[in-house]
């Protein structure tokens, strides 16, 4: 599993597009908001948590189809299915590699982007913590969607439709955590819910993905 995880990281760094695409998309979306909404600083501060979370979520969505599609196209997935690593293990390694190459950079990039949206200073630590805790759920749920659509050429649309509803709880609790912090309320309860959602996805999704992959192999 470690070999697979390290190989995926190496591939993401070497293949231009895989690593930078999500990050670039996140930067563009968030940077366009002040232009579209106007320079009303109080308004920007109020919508900043939502914008940052939506931006991170959409950026994550953009890179999901790469999780299994590339390996399915060159036959690697078939060989992995006959290897000593169980398919659930394959999913865990790939989800983790996806998180390190998208979720983690998005979390770090959110700090300067929060400044751009006039996010109040009390909220930065909560923004980082909520993204750090919430984005693994995006990777694990996304891997499940990618596993279902792996046999379909250009399955991006179906993948988005499948995954977006599953992302909504994470989006709600993630954004609310930061909003509560901005308003001076206690963000802990929503953060706990967010952590619960992530733990649930990490436990369930690899097995669901393994089932989906198994039925998609040929």
């Amino acid at each position: 599993m470690l070999a697979l995880f390290l190989r995926d990281l190496k591939l993401a760094i070497r293949t231009s597009g895989g690593f930078g695409l999500a990050l670039a998309f996140f930067l563009i979306v968030v940077m366009f908001v002040p232009f579209g909404v106007g320079s009303d600083l109080t308004l920007l501060a109020r919508i900043a948590p939502g914008i940052l979370w939506i931006g991170a979520l959409l950026a994550c969505l953009l890179s999901l189809d790469r999780i299994f599609q590339l390996d399915a196209e060159d036959g690697t997935l078939n060989v992995l299915a006959t290897s000593p690593i169980p398919l659930s293990g394959v999913t865990v390694a790939k989800s983790m590699a996806h998180w390190v190459t998208t979720g983690l950079p998005l979390t770090i990039a959110a700090i300067p982007l929060g400044y751009l949206l006039n996010l109040p200073s009390v909220a930065y630590s909560w923004l980082c913590i909520s993204l750090l805790i919430g984005t693994p759920a995006l990777s694990f749920i996304g891997a499940f969607g990618a596993a279902i659509t792996v046999g379909i050429k250009r399955g991006g649309l179906l993948l988005s439709l499948l995954v977006l509803p599953l992302y909504i709880p994470t989006l709600i609790f993630g954004a609310v955590t930061v909003t509560k912090a901005v308003e001076g309320l206690d963000p802990m309860p929503s953060l706990m819910f967010l952590a619960g959602l992530t733990l649930l996805s990490v436990v369930i999704m690899p097995f669901a993905s393994a089932l989906a992959l198994k039925s998609n192999l040929s």
Partner: peptide
């Protein structure tokens, strides 16, 4: 070993 070689072009 199938029809495809299961190798990564970037490596």
């Amino acid at each position: 070993s199938g029809h495809l070689d299961a190798i990564k072009f970037q490596l």
